[in-house]
Design a protein around this nucleic acid. Structure first.
Lengths: 200, 200
DNA sequence: ATCGAAACGGACAGTAGTGTCCACTTGAGC
DNA sequence: GCTCAAGTGGACACTACTGTCCGTTTCGAT
């Protein structure tokens, strides 16, 4: 499970560059054409031959995993920054949504292709990322106390759907932000008029 | 716009039967394999040749539209039953979710294929179905007063996503119910301890 | 500058799904 | 029961995507 982490002994510089260019291209293509965009389109967009792409990533899932892995790194760093502050959970949620609007890949890629080994391997990492912050937030009363990790995963699925939808009107960013807002506060109004106005 | 509504002058009985069988098959196939299941699979599942399918429905969107139209009929009847009672909106929402778990087709079909004429034609009907009940519910304070129709559409998109996800654990029904509950009440707890406990 | 290994990308064959055509079958009116 | 238009489904040609193979190019070490 640590086979290709960090250290890859001898890699030619151009190969390394190409790999990076492919991942970047994949981010864009996945974002604009969805996760099952023609694999070939990614190669073209990256300016490499299809063979080069296949050599680096056996299939679209491996490529997705590479992207997700990057994102996970960022998110884990963020989690570390927040330590055990109870608001870490919400911060993570927002950060995930932000990366969503950017990469369009994280959760959809993780959830589709059920059982794709390359992606499935990352699930525990996502789990680990969220479990503790979720518990903290729950005991601190920042989220409802029956909120489970499975719920959170489904919430991410829902947000991803809004993102994936081509949406005839507002920008992706606005729609995502709104969707998150709706999810957090619900469709039903808060206790109408009362002391502190929820703070947001 | 009324070209093929209700009256189709002379149709052979077997043709009618086949059409019905196709729609039924499509419901099941879309439900289990998603909206872009091979068109051919539907024909096979219905026990008819592909040509027969194509003769009845030029493409998957036309077929989707037929299904959605059925569902819309049911929902419109429900809306009529509720008259202008302020809880009509929530009832509709639940009903849609129920049909979702059954058919898996309504909203996803409506929202994907952006601009497919066959489906786009139904959008106004959905709009009409929801607009008034939404307004009633809003003025009655049953939903937050900044809730727009666009929001509702996105909510339906989100619910459809949970449904579409193969979900490793709980049944579709349970997950849908839970997702709806989360959406309605939000992730954040209601005003913790206070007079009336929200009623549910 | 030279040489071998690493990496490249275009070309190729294989596969899955689409949409149409047409020889055959079947229902319904006479 | 006969007839013919309506209806059927298998076959076919077409397209898009996938994954691999191999002759050529490029890196980097000597």
């Amino acid at each position: 499970m640590e086979s290709q982490t960090e250290k890859r002994p001898a890699r030619r510089r151009d190969a390394e560059e190409n790999r990076a260019r492919i991942v970047a291209a994949a981010r864009e293509v996945y974002a604009s054409a969805g996760f099952d965009a023609p694999f070939d389109a990614i190669a073209r967009h990256a300016g490499v031959g299809r063979a080069t792409l296949y050599r680096n990533f056996p299939d679209r899932y491996a490529l997705g995993a590479a992207i997700v892995e990057d994102d996970l790194g960022t998110l884990e760093a963020l989690a570390r920054e927040h330590g055990d502050r109870p608001d870490a959970f919400m911060a993570l949620l927002s950060a995930i949504v932000e990366r969503h609007t950017e990469t369009h890949a994280l959760v959809p890629a993780l959830l589709r292709g059920p059982g794709e080994p390359a992606l499935q391997a990352l699930v525990p990492r996502v789990t680990r990322l969220l479990t503790v912050p979720l518990r903290r937030a729950r005991t601190a009363g920042l989220v409802r106390d029956d909120l489970t990790l499975a719920d959170v995963i489904d919430v991410l699925t829902m947000l991803a759907a809004v993102l994936a939808d081509d949406g005839t009107g507002r920008s992706r960013e606005r729609r995502m932000a709104r969707a998150l807002e709706l999810l957090i506060h619900g469709l039903v109004p808060r206790e109408p008029v009362h002391s502190h106005p929820s703070r947001r």
